[in-house]
Design a protein around this nucleic acid. Structure first.
Ligand code: SF4
Ligand code: SF4
Lengths: 141, 141
DNA sequence: AGTAACTGGATCTTTTTTATCTTAAATTTT
DNA sequence: AAAATTTAAGATAAAAAAGATCCAGTTACT
Protein backbone atom coordinates (compact mmCIF):
# COMPACT_ATOMS: atom_id res chain seq x y z
CA UNK A 1 0.00 0.00 0.00
CA UNK A 2 3.05 2.21 -0.16
CA UNK A 3 5.14 3.49 -3.01
CA UNK A 4 8.62 2.05 -3.36
CA UNK A 5 11.73 3.74 -2.15
CA UNK A 6 12.81 3.93 -5.78
CA UNK A 7 9.70 5.90 -6.61
CA UNK A 8 10.28 8.39 -3.86
CA UNK A 9 13.89 8.74 -4.97
CA UNK A 10 12.70 9.24 -8.52
CA UNK A 11 10.40 12.03 -7.46
CA UNK A 12 13.19 13.67 -5.52
CA UNK A 13 15.34 13.48 -8.58
CA UNK A 14 12.73 14.98 -10.85
CA UNK A 15 11.88 17.78 -8.46
CA UNK A 16 15.55 18.56 -8.03
CA UNK A 17 16.02 18.71 -11.78
CA UNK A 18 12.97 20.91 -12.09
CA UNK A 19 14.55 23.31 -9.66
CA UNK A 20 17.74 23.33 -11.74
CA UNK A 21 16.05 24.92 -14.72
CA UNK A 22 17.47 22.98 -17.63
CA UNK A 23 20.99 22.70 -16.37
CA UNK A 24 22.70 19.33 -16.82
CA UNK A 25 23.17 18.09 -13.28
CA UNK A 26 25.77 15.42 -12.51
CA UNK A 27 24.53 12.33 -10.77
CA UNK A 28 26.84 12.74 -7.82
CA UNK A 29 25.42 16.14 -7.02
CA UNK A 30 21.86 14.87 -6.99
CA UNK A 31 22.75 11.76 -5.03
CA UNK A 32 24.42 13.82 -2.38
CA UNK A 33 21.82 16.57 -2.18
CA UNK A 34 18.83 14.25 -2.19
CA UNK A 35 20.43 11.47 -0.16
CA UNK A 36 20.04 8.73 -2.72
CA UNK A 37 22.53 5.87 -3.15
CA UNK A 38 24.34 6.94 -6.33
CA UNK A 39 24.26 3.57 -8.09
CA UNK A 40 20.61 3.17 -7.32
CA UNK A 41 19.96 6.63 -8.60
CA UNK A 42 21.60 5.64 -11.87
CA UNK A 43 19.11 2.82 -12.33
CA UNK A 44 16.19 5.05 -11.53
CA UNK A 45 17.37 7.69 -13.95
CA UNK A 46 17.67 5.10 -16.66
CA UNK A 47 14.07 4.10 -16.15
CA UNK A 48 12.90 7.65 -16.25
CA UNK A 49 14.94 8.27 -19.37
CA UNK A 50 13.30 5.33 -21.11
CA UNK A 51 9.96 6.75 -20.14
CA UNK A 52 10.94 9.98 -21.86
CA UNK A 53 10.90 12.06 -18.72
CA UNK A 54 14.53 12.99 -18.53
CA UNK A 55 17.54 13.21 -20.74
CA UNK A 56 20.88 11.66 -19.97
CA UNK A 57 24.12 13.23 -21.05
CA UNK A 58 27.07 10.87 -20.96
CA UNK A 59 30.70 11.74 -20.99
CA UNK A 60 32.80 14.12 -19.10
CA UNK A 61 30.34 16.89 -18.27
CA UNK A 62 27.44 14.50 -18.23
CA UNK A 63 24.44 14.23 -15.99
CA UNK A 64 20.69 14.50 -16.07
CA UNK A 65 18.19 17.07 -17.26
CA UNK A 66 14.43 17.20 -17.64
CA UNK A 67 13.29 16.40 -21.11
CA UNK A 68 10.17 18.56 -20.90
CA UNK A 69 9.35 21.73 -18.99
CA UNK A 70 8.51 21.18 -15.35
CA UNK A 71 5.11 22.75 -15.94
CA UNK A 72 4.22 19.84 -18.19
CA UNK A 73 5.31 16.82 -16.16
CA UNK A 74 2.90 15.45 -13.60
CA UNK A 75 3.64 13.50 -10.50
CA UNK A 76 1.50 10.74 -11.91
CA UNK A 77 3.82 10.34 -14.88
CA UNK A 78 6.85 10.08 -12.66
CA UNK A 79 5.25 7.60 -10.32
CA UNK A 80 3.85 5.42 -13.06
CA UNK A 81 7.13 5.44 -14.95
CA UNK A 82 8.64 3.72 -11.94
CA UNK A 83 5.77 1.65 -10.57
CA UNK A 84 3.79 0.82 -13.64
CA UNK A 85 0.22 1.96 -13.88
CA UNK A 86 -1.16 2.54 -10.43
CA UNK A 87 -3.61 -0.07 -9.22
CA UNK A 88 -4.61 -0.46 -5.60
CA UNK A 89 -5.54 -4.09 -6.04
CA UNK A 90 -4.54 -6.83 -8.45
CA UNK A 91 -7.96 -6.88 -10.02
CA UNK A 92 -7.85 -3.22 -10.95
CA UNK A 93 -7.00 -3.09 -14.61
CA UNK A 94 -6.90 -6.89 -14.68
CA UNK A 95 -10.41 -8.07 -13.90
CA UNK A 96 -9.57 -11.44 -15.42
CA UNK A 97 -7.20 -12.11 -12.55
CA UNK A 98 -10.08 -12.81 -10.20
CA UNK A 99 -13.11 -14.84 -11.08
CA UNK A 100 -15.28 -12.80 -8.73
CA UNK A 101 -14.65 -9.52 -10.44
CA UNK A 102 -17.76 -9.49 -12.64
CA UNK A 103 -20.03 -9.29 -9.62
CA UNK A 104 -17.69 -8.12 -6.88
CA UNK A 105 -18.67 -4.80 -5.39
CA UNK A 106 -15.33 -4.40 -3.69
CA UNK A 107 -13.74 -4.47 -7.10
CA UNK A 108 -15.65 -1.32 -7.96
CA UNK A 109 -14.40 0.36 -4.83
CA UNK A 110 -10.77 -0.36 -5.66
CA UNK A 111 -11.29 0.89 -9.16
CA UNK A 112 -12.84 4.09 -7.92
CA UNK A 113 -10.15 4.60 -5.33
CA UNK A 114 -7.44 4.00 -7.90
CA UNK A 115 -8.99 6.45 -10.28
CA UNK A 116 -9.27 9.02 -7.53
CA UNK A 117 -5.62 8.66 -6.68
CA UNK A 118 -4.51 8.85 -10.29
CA UNK A 119 -6.61 11.95 -10.75
CA UNK A 120 -5.04 13.65 -7.81
CA UNK A 121 -1.49 12.86 -8.85
CA UNK A 122 -2.25 13.73 -12.44
CA UNK A 123 -3.07 17.27 -11.50
CA UNK A 124 0.17 18.03 -9.76
CA UNK A 125 3.08 19.26 -11.82
CA UNK A 126 6.75 19.28 -10.95
CA UNK A 127 6.67 23.04 -11.18
CA UNK A 128 4.23 23.06 -8.27
CA UNK A 129 6.62 21.07 -6.15
CA UNK A 130 9.73 23.16 -6.20
CA UNK A 131 10.67 24.56 -2.84
CA UNK A 132 10.64 28.26 -3.35
CA UNK A 133 13.73 29.93 -2.00
CA UNK A 134 13.43 32.79 0.44
CA UNK A 135 11.55 35.68 -1.06
CA UNK A 136 14.42 38.11 -0.55
CA UNK A 137 16.16 36.67 -3.59
CA UNK A 138 13.61 37.44 -6.23
CA UNK A 139 10.97 39.77 -4.97
CA UNK A 140 12.98 42.19 -2.95
CA UNK A 141 15.59 42.59 -5.66
CA UNK B 1 1.18 0.60 -4.14
CA UNK B 2 -1.13 -2.36 -3.90
CA UNK B 3 -2.89 -3.99 -1.01
CA UNK B 4 -1.64 -7.41 0.03
CA UNK B 5 -3.28 -10.61 -0.97
CA UNK B 6 -4.05 -11.16 2.71
CA UNK B 7 -5.99 -7.93 2.78
CA UNK B 8 -8.07 -8.85 -0.21
CA UNK B 9 -8.73 -12.25 1.32
CA UNK B 10 -9.70 -10.54 4.54
CA UNK B 11 -12.20 -8.37 2.77
CA UNK B 12 -13.66 -11.38 1.00
CA UNK B 13 -14.01 -13.08 4.35
CA UNK B 14 -15.73 -10.12 5.96
CA UNK B 15 -18.10 -9.57 3.09
CA UNK B 16 -18.96 -13.25 3.06
CA UNK B 17 -19.70 -13.16 6.77
CA UNK B 18 -21.78 -10.05 6.30
CA UNK B 19 -23.87 -11.93 3.78
CA UNK B 20 -24.32 -14.77 6.26
CA UNK B 21 -26.27 -12.63 8.68
CA UNK B 22 -24.84 -13.63 12.02
CA UNK B 23 -24.52 -17.31 11.33
CA UNK B 24 -21.33 -19.00 12.54
CA UNK B 25 -19.62 -20.02 9.34
CA UNK B 26 -16.98 -22.75 9.35
CA UNK B 27 -13.61 -21.83 7.95
CA UNK B 28 -13.67 -24.53 5.33
CA UNK B 29 -16.86 -23.18 3.83
CA UNK B 30 -15.44 -19.71 3.48
CA UNK B 31 -12.13 -20.94 2.17
CA UNK B 32 -13.83 -22.92 -0.50
CA UNK B 33 -16.41 -20.33 -1.47
CA UNK B 34 -13.98 -17.43 -1.53
CA UNK B 35 -11.00 -19.37 -2.89
CA UNK B 36 -8.67 -18.66 -0.03
CA UNK B 37 -6.01 -21.12 1.19
CA UNK B 38 -7.61 -22.42 4.40
CA UNK B 39 -4.54 -22.16 6.59
CA UNK B 40 -3.85 -18.68 5.40
CA UNK B 41 -7.45 -17.76 6.04
CA UNK B 42 -7.01 -18.91 9.62
CA UNK B 43 -4.17 -16.47 10.13
CA UNK B 44 -6.14 -13.64 8.62
CA UNK B 45 -9.16 -14.39 10.74
CA UNK B 46 -6.99 -14.36 13.85
CA UNK B 47 -5.81 -10.88 12.99
CA UNK B 48 -9.30 -9.64 12.39
CA UNK B 49 -10.44 -11.20 15.64
CA UNK B 50 -7.72 -9.39 17.55
CA UNK B 51 -8.84 -6.18 15.92
CA UNK B 52 -12.33 -6.84 17.24
CA UNK B 53 -13.92 -7.21 13.85
CA UNK B 54 -14.97 -10.81 14.04
CA UNK B 55 -15.64 -13.46 16.57
CA UNK B 56 -14.14 -16.91 16.53
CA UNK B 57 -16.03 -19.90 17.81
CA UNK B 58 -13.81 -22.86 18.51
CA UNK B 59 -14.85 -26.41 19.01
CA UNK B 60 -17.01 -28.72 17.10
CA UNK B 61 -19.49 -26.35 15.49
CA UNK B 62 -16.97 -23.56 15.33
CA UNK B 63 -16.26 -20.95 12.76
CA UNK B 64 -16.38 -17.22 12.26
CA UNK B 65 -18.98 -14.53 12.66
CA UNK B 66 -19.00 -10.74 12.50
CA UNK B 67 -18.65 -9.13 15.86
CA UNK B 68 -20.62 -6.05 14.90
CA UNK B 69 -23.44 -5.46 12.44
CA UNK B 70 -22.32 -5.17 8.85
CA UNK B 71 -23.82 -1.69 8.72
CA UNK B 72 -21.25 -0.54 11.22
CA UNK B 73 -18.00 -1.97 9.84
CA UNK B 74 -16.18 0.02 7.22
CA UNK B 75 -13.82 -1.21 4.58
CA UNK B 76 -11.19 1.06 6.07
CA UNK B 77 -11.35 -0.81 9.36
CA UNK B 78 -10.89 -4.13 7.66
CA UNK B 79 -8.03 -2.95 5.51
CA UNK B 80 -6.21 -1.21 8.32
CA UNK B 81 -6.64 -4.16 10.63
CA UNK B 82 -4.57 -6.14 8.16
CA UNK B 83 -2.19 -3.57 6.74
CA UNK B 84 -1.76 -1.16 9.58
CA UNK B 85 -2.75 2.43 9.12
CA UNK B 86 -2.75 3.30 5.47
CA UNK B 87 0.10 5.51 4.33
CA UNK B 88 1.05 5.95 0.69
CA UNK B 89 4.62 6.85 1.52
CA UNK B 90 6.95 6.18 4.43
CA UNK B 91 6.92 9.80 5.46
CA UNK B 92 3.16 9.89 5.86
CA UNK B 93 2.46 9.61 9.54
CA UNK B 94 6.21 9.44 10.20
CA UNK B 95 7.64 12.77 9.08
CA UNK B 96 10.71 12.13 11.19
CA UNK B 97 11.70 9.32 8.83
CA UNK B 98 12.84 11.80 6.21
CA UNK B 99 14.85 14.88 6.91
CA UNK B 100 13.27 16.71 3.99
CA UNK B 101 9.75 16.42 5.29
CA UNK B 102 9.54 19.82 6.98
CA UNK B 103 9.86 21.62 3.65
CA UNK B 104 9.00 18.91 1.15
CA UNK B 105 5.96 19.71 -0.93
CA UNK B 106 5.67 16.17 -2.16
CA UNK B 107 5.19 15.12 1.41
CA UNK B 108 2.02 17.19 1.52
CA UNK B 109 0.76 15.52 -1.61
CA UNK B 110 1.20 12.06 -0.17
CA UNK B 111 -0.51 13.12 3.00
CA UNK B 112 -3.44 14.53 1.10
CA UNK B 113 -3.69 11.47 -1.12
CA UNK B 114 -3.58 9.17 1.87
CA UNK B 115 -6.28 11.10 3.60
CA UNK B 116 -8.43 11.02 0.50
CA UNK B 117 -8.09 7.29 0.25
CA UNK B 118 -8.86 6.74 3.90
CA UNK B 119 -11.89 8.93 3.59
CA UNK B 120 -13.21 6.98 0.69
CA UNK B 121 -12.73 3.60 2.33
CA UNK B 122 -14.07 4.91 5.60
CA UNK B 123 -17.40 5.64 4.04
CA UNK B 124 -18.04 2.21 2.68
CA UNK B 125 -19.68 -0.34 4.92
CA UNK B 126 -19.73 -4.09 4.59
CA UNK B 127 -23.47 -3.92 4.24
CA UNK B 128 -22.97 -1.95 1.04
CA UNK B 129 -20.79 -4.65 -0.40
CA UNK B 130 -23.00 -7.69 -0.22
CA UNK B 131 -23.90 -9.12 -3.57
CA UNK B 132 -27.63 -9.09 -3.59
CA UNK B 133 -28.93 -12.33 -4.89
CA UNK B 134 -31.74 -12.38 -7.40
CA UNK B 135 -35.06 -13.07 -5.74
CA UNK B 136 -35.16 -16.85 -5.79
CA UNK B 137 -31.95 -18.17 -7.19
CA UNK B 138 -31.17 -20.07 -4.05
CA UNK B 139 -33.15 -22.97 -5.34
CA UNK B 140 -32.48 -23.41 -8.99
CA UNK B 141 -35.87 -23.83 -10.57
C1' DA C 1 -14.17 -39.91 26.03
C1' DG C 2 -14.18 -39.02 21.15
C1' DT C 3 -14.31 -36.04 17.45
C1' DA C 4 -14.50 -31.80 14.91
C1' DA C 5 -12.83 -27.27 14.54
C1' DC C 6 -9.85 -23.42 15.49
C1' DT C 7 -5.33 -21.47 17.88
C1' DG C 8 -0.74 -19.72 17.94
C1' DG C 9 3.72 -19.99 16.98
C1' DA C 10 7.22 -21.74 14.00
C1' DT C 11 8.82 -22.61 9.66
C1' DC C 12 9.44 -22.49 4.92
C1' DT C 13 9.35 -20.81 0.05
C1' DT C 14 8.92 -17.42 -3.21
C1' DT C 15 8.87 -12.84 -4.69
C1' DT C 16 9.99 -8.13 -4.33
C1' DT C 17 12.78 -4.56 -2.92
C1' DT C 18 16.94 -2.30 -2.41
C1' DA C 19 21.50 -1.90 -3.52
C1' DT C 20 25.98 -2.81 -5.62
C1' DC C 21 29.48 -4.50 -8.92
C1' DT C 22 31.54 -4.82 -13.38
C1' DT C 23 32.66 -4.13 -18.08
C1' DA C 24 31.69 -1.08 -21.79
C1' DA C 25 30.52 3.18 -24.07
C1' DA C 26 30.22 8.18 -24.62
C1' DT C 27 31.96 12.84 -24.35
C1' DT C 28 35.08 16.44 -23.16
C1' DT C 29 39.73 18.00 -22.35
C1' DT C 30 44.54 17.77 -23.23
C1' DA D 1 44.84 10.35 -30.46
C1' DA D 2 45.07 9.62 -25.59
C1' DA D 3 43.46 10.60 -21.03
C1' DA D 4 40.03 11.71 -17.88
C1' DT D 5 35.43 11.74 -16.47
C1' DT D 6 30.82 10.33 -16.45
C1' DT D 7 26.99 7.34 -17.50
C1' DA D 8 25.06 2.55 -19.61
C1' DA D 9 23.42 -1.94 -19.05
C1' DG D 10 23.22 -6.22 -17.29
C1' DA D 11 24.42 -9.37 -13.61
C1' DT D 12 24.53 -10.26 -8.96
C1' DA D 13 23.55 -10.21 -4.15
C1' DA D 14 21.67 -9.13 0.35
C1' DA D 15 17.62 -8.02 2.92
C1' DA D 16 12.91 -7.70 3.64
C1' DA D 17 8.23 -8.81 2.84
C1' DA D 18 4.64 -11.67 1.21
C1' DG D 19 2.37 -15.86 0.87
C1' DA D 20 1.58 -20.24 2.45
C1' DT D 21 1.90 -24.35 5.39
C1' DC D 22 2.76 -27.35 9.55
C1' DC D 23 1.83 -29.06 13.96
C1' DA D 24 1.16 -29.67 18.85
C1' DG D 25 -2.36 -27.70 21.72
C1' DT D 26 -7.03 -26.03 23.01
C1' DT D 27 -12.02 -25.68 22.86
C1' DA D 28 -16.57 -27.31 22.61
C1' DC D 29 -20.22 -30.31 21.02
C1' DT D 30 -22.28 -35.15 21.39
S1 SF4 E 1 -11.80 -7.07 -4.89
FE1 SF4 E 1 -13.27 -8.54 -5.62
S2 SF4 E 1 -12.65 -8.78 -7.73
FE2 SF4 E 1 -10.97 -7.74 -6.80
S3 SF4 E 1 -9.63 -9.40 -6.22
FE3 SF4 E 1 -10.86 -8.99 -4.41
S4 SF4 E 1 -12.53 -10.41 -4.71
FE4 SF4 E 1 -11.56 -10.37 -6.66
S1 SF4 F 1 7.99 12.82 -0.08
FE1 SF4 F 1 9.41 14.35 0.62
S2 SF4 F 1 9.31 14.05 2.80
FE2 SF4 F 1 8.36 12.29 2.00
S3 SF4 F 1 10.01 10.83 1.85
FE3 SF4 F 1 9.93 11.79 -0.14
S4 SF4 F 1 11.34 13.44 0.09
FE4 SF4 F 1 10.99 12.78 2.15
Amino acid sequence: MKINRATDYGVRLMVYLAACEGRVVPRAEIASAMEIPPEFLAKIAQHLAKAGLLEIRQGRAGGYRLKRPSQEITLLEVVEALEGEIALNLCVGHPESCRFSPTCKVHLVWEAATEGLRDLLGNIYLANLIEKKAKSDEEVG
